[in-house]
Design a protein around this nucleic acid. Structure first.
Lengths: 218, 218
DNA sequence: GTCTATATACGGATAGAC
DNA sequence: GTCTATCCGTATATAGAC
């Protein structure tokens, strides 16, 4: 791949939101990539959504691939940073963290429902090497959150010793409804508003359910 | 789209498995579509995987789109039929059905781990109109399974009245780990074998967890 | 039914004027 | 920075020989 392209334009000091061409393209790329995935989106879709000329996409971001990597990086790091603070806050209890995780994930996904499926479905493409470029995921197992979980296991408050099961459960209860939303809306004849109301309920319910599960007798 | 193509060949009466060209293409299409999704697969990928000439794909199935629709239909109906029998078996208890659902889903997904993400990610493409063509999904809410659930709510054995929450929980606990497996394997430094072992554990654990949840005090 | 060769369309990317 | 026009590789699909 040649590298003779002009340098990227310098960042404006105080740009209005989404008014610069670069920002318009990024916003459109976020929307279209999330909605359709990398392979199904055409650069023309993004140009149309951003209402800019197709050539400008390459002018600012060089290639579809590079633009996608930027979008994916922003999405994933935003997602992880959001959680990192909760996971490693030494001042909150295990129960409180479970509450916070459920609330934050659900609020985030009500605002951007395509994010979970977008991330999960792009992760399966080995060409994109997203997982390799990610900040080491396994530090999650060293987080305060998981240490608190392990302590609760030792002190007998929790029956399931494997924190991976715990994480799968918490994520499954929280994230799955958004991944399966097309099917669930059809199955339950739900409007978007009704679906969101169910998700709001789950912010309260999930911590209760998790608590009940933690005391399950095997 | 023109329609001048030759008729489909008649089905052999007793073909060996995967030996006819048609079967080889279908098997390859299943594999490649599931792995990469519709937009990212090229008909050449399928032809290579099936070790047949590219032109034969169009000879047998007319177009990539038509082949995909066939594969998707087979995948989804196979998936639904598998569950239908469990959901509407009047001779099994609610608890037993929960056991059976967890076991069957997990066995199915250990054998074909890409299925959940494949279905979920293709469902978001409105062009494919998969949901429209599906056997009405909302009959699930009329199934024996859900009726038994509602009865258990009335008799006070279960606290959560909304069967949709119940279904989301059961599916989330069962399906999500397969959807998030790339991330989970990385996060937990798991080999495929270790991951499968965890899933085997969940066949026993999920019914216990669900039971504990059903008694949760709000 | 299966092959080779090719038509045709589409999508990513760039050249070059303004 | 932004536009029009266009190049060029790639992917689907078909024609036509065998």
């Amino acid at each position: 791949m040649r590298n003779t392209h002009a340098a990227m334009p310098v960042k404006k000091t105080a740009p209005s939101i989404d008014t610069t061409t670069e920002e318009k393209i990024k916003a459109a790329a976020h929307a279209v990539f999330r909605r359709k995935g990398f392979a199904a989106t055409r650069t023309r879709d993004i140009a149309d959504e951003a209402k800019i000329n197709l050539a400008l996409l390459n002018y600012y971001f060089r290639s579809k691939q590079k633009l996608f990597e930027l979008i994916m990086f922003e999405t994933v790091t935003g997602f992880i940073n959001n959680m990192q603070t909760v996971f490693n806050d030494a001042s909150t209890s295990l129960e409180r963290k479970i509450q916070l995780v459920a609330e934050r994930y659900i609020d985030l996904f009500i605002a951007d429902p395509e994010i979970p499926l977008f991330i999960m479905s792009e992760l399966r493409n080995p060409d994109l090497e997203i997982l390799q470029k990610l900040p080491a995921l396994h530090v999650i197992l060293k987080s305060t959150f998981i240490l608190q979980y392990k302590n609760a296991v030792v002190s007998g408050k929790i029956t399931e010793p494997n924190p991976l099961h715990f994480l799968m459960n918490l994520m499954g209860l929280t994230i799955f409804p958004f991944i399966g939303s097309p099917m669930l809306k059809k199955l339950g004849k739900l409007t978007n508003r009704e679906f969101d109301a169910l998700m709001q309920e789950r912010k309260k319910l999930i911590p209760v359910w998790i608590k009940a599960m933690s005391r399950a007798k095997y």
